[in-house]
Simulated assay, not measured.
Amino acid sequence: MSITTRTVEYTTAGGLTLKSYLCLPEHAVDSLSGILVAPEWWGLSEHAKRAAERLAEQGYAALAMDLYGGARLTDDAAQANAWMTEALADPAVLTERTRLGLKALAAQPEVDGNRIGAIGFCFGGRVVLDMARRGDDLKAVTSFHGILATPEPAREG
C-alpha cells in the first residue's frame, strides 16, 4: 500500500517546537486508528520513521514523535545520552511532550482520537510504558527492548 507523509509541528509551553513525522495510507479516510512511535535515544531516527511508514502501509495513521525538539538526531552515543538524560531529568518534560504528540495525532482529520496506541524502542519503550503508567488515553502500548525502570509505577486500575 502506498503512503503519504508530512511533518506535524507543535510547541511546548516553554516554546520548544517539536517536529514529528506523520505517515498515512495514501488514500486515507477518516476514523483511522493511530499509533504513536517513540524513538530510541538517538532522536527522530530513520528506524522510528520507517516503523511509522510500515504501520501506515498496514492502514494505520502513525506519528513518529520528536521528543527532543527540532527533529534532532545524532549518531554520537554521548550526545544521545545527554539529550535523553536531560529529557528524563524532569518527568514533566516528557509528560508534556508525549501528551502534545498524542493530542497532535488525535487532532489529525484522518484519525479517530479514541483509537490510539503507542509503541517505542529502547528509550522510547520506556516513554510509552510511562504513558501507560500515567493513564494516558491509549488503547494499547508495546515496548520493544524498552527501559523498564521508572520513577512512576503504574497506577491502580
Results as ranks from 00 to 15, higher is better:
21 Y>N: 04
111 V>M: 00
139 K>V: 14
57 E>Q: 15
92 A>G: 06
119 I>L: 12
61 A>Q: 01
130 D>W: 09
79 Q>A: 07
79 Q>G: 02
49 K>H: 11
97 R>I: 13
51 A>V: 15
6 R>D: 04
55 L>N: 04
37 V>T: 07
124 G>D: 07
115 R>Q: 14
133 R>T: 01
104 A>Y: 14
142 T>S: 15
72 R>C: 02
35 I>E: 02
47 H>P: 01
148 L>S: 15
100 L>W: 09
144 F>H: 12
64 A>G: 06
131 M>A: 15
130 D>A: 11
154 A>P: 03
134 R>F: 11
146 G>N: 10
13 A>W: 09
7 T>W: 02
125 G>K: 11
45 S>C: 02
39 P>T: 08
7 T>N: 02
151 P>G: 07
133 R>C: 10
44 L>T: 10
110 E>P: 02
35 I>W: 03
75 D>E: 14
141 V>P: 11
36 L>K: 14
71 A>L: 00
39 P>A: 13
72 R>K: 03
43 G>A: 07
8 V>R: 09
74 T>G: 08
85 T>G: 06
89 A>E: 00
13 A>V: 13
138 L>C: 12
40 E>L: 03
143 S>L: 08
105 L>H: 12
145 H>K: 10
132 A>R: 15
94 L>Y: 03
66 D>L: 03
20 S>R: 05
30 D>N: 04
87 A>Y: 02
4 T>W: 04
87 A>I: 00
107 A>Y: 10
76 D>R: 12
97 R>M: 05
90 D>Y: 00
128 V>T: 08
70 G>V: 01
118 A>I: 06
21 Y>P: 01
147 I>P: 04
100 L>E: 10
119 I>H: 07
3 I>L: 09
101 G>S: 13
24 L>A: 00
65 M>L: 15
137 D>T: 12
137 D>V: 10
136 D>Y: 15
1 M>W: 11
65 M>W: 07
61 A>H: 03
70 G>A: 02
10 Y>A: 10
5 T>I: 05
35 I>Y: 04
110 E>G: 02
5 T>K: 08
153 P>R: 00
16 L>V: 15
38 A>T: 09
129 L>R: 12
70 G>C: 01
12 T>V: 05
38 A>K: 10
114 N>A: 14
125 G>P: 07
26 E>Q: 13
120 G>L: 12
36 L>Y: 15
122 C>N: 13
79 Q>L: 04
40 E>Q: 06
110 E>R: 01
